[in-house]
Nucleic acid binder design. Sequence first.
DNA 1: TCATCATATCGTATTTCGACGATCAACGAT
DNA 2: ATCGTTGATCGTCGAAATACGATATGATGA
Lengths: 114, 114
Amino acid sequence: MVSVSTEPVSDECVCVDSHSVAVASPISEDQFAAMAKALGHPMRIRILRLLAERQSCITGDVVAELPLAQSTVSEHLRILRDAGLIQGEIEGPRTSYCLNTSGLAALRAAMASL
Amino acid sequence: MVSVSTEPVSDECVCVDSHSVAVASPISEDQFAAMAKALGHPMRIRILRLLAERQSCITGDVVAELPLAQSTVSEHLRILRDAGLIQGEIEGPRTSYCLNTSGLAALRAAMASL
DNA sequence: TCATCATATCGTATTTCGACGATCAACGAT
DNA sequence: ATCGTTGATCGTCGAAATACGATATGATGA
């Protein structure tokens, strides 16, 4: 259980970068490793950069940009989503993906603690 | 080609954290992925934290801290070194490892660009 | 309703990872 | 010169990752 105190948050890491201002909740070593692992593939880096350039993409947009089969791209998107690096939202017959800014902030905060 | 102007660097990412101030040289997507992949294992995270706490460790110190065989730890250290996240220096019969601050800075810079 | 489009999932083959014990190489001390 | 210590490398095994085509799902439109 995580208790939520009524005091103002004073000891938490506040990350201020060019993209967002976020309070990153600390993550465990295993979560940190899982996120880094998800990041550890060139095609998944490209997917993240693509989502950073455009605000959001549907699966087909990502497939069109990468030299991979549709099923492979779908799997990479699942891995990124499971790791908390992106978010997927079903929009009718499509799925729209965008960066998960809080997940990315948590990862950056963990990186900074090394 | 990246032209190096004579103006003061104004568009480069300068990372200021509690550990260091560094201008990170940009890395390729493949290098980024390789570094993240190396980071993507809980035991390797623990090794990095260990090296962050102490200034440096010899292989045996790391072996003593982890529930792994000596050969396995040596392999993890090799992976981290190949990825540019740590540095190893041979000191007589031992090898002393420490964090590679420029590699870590480059990784943080790449993370920030997402 | 039926066909179509967009995605996710399944089954599978290949490759890579992670772990171990055993061995090899290098250095220091006796 | 030989021995013990330290750590890297080799060989091997099972597990996991990566890729693909084929198929299932589910919403939209004719």
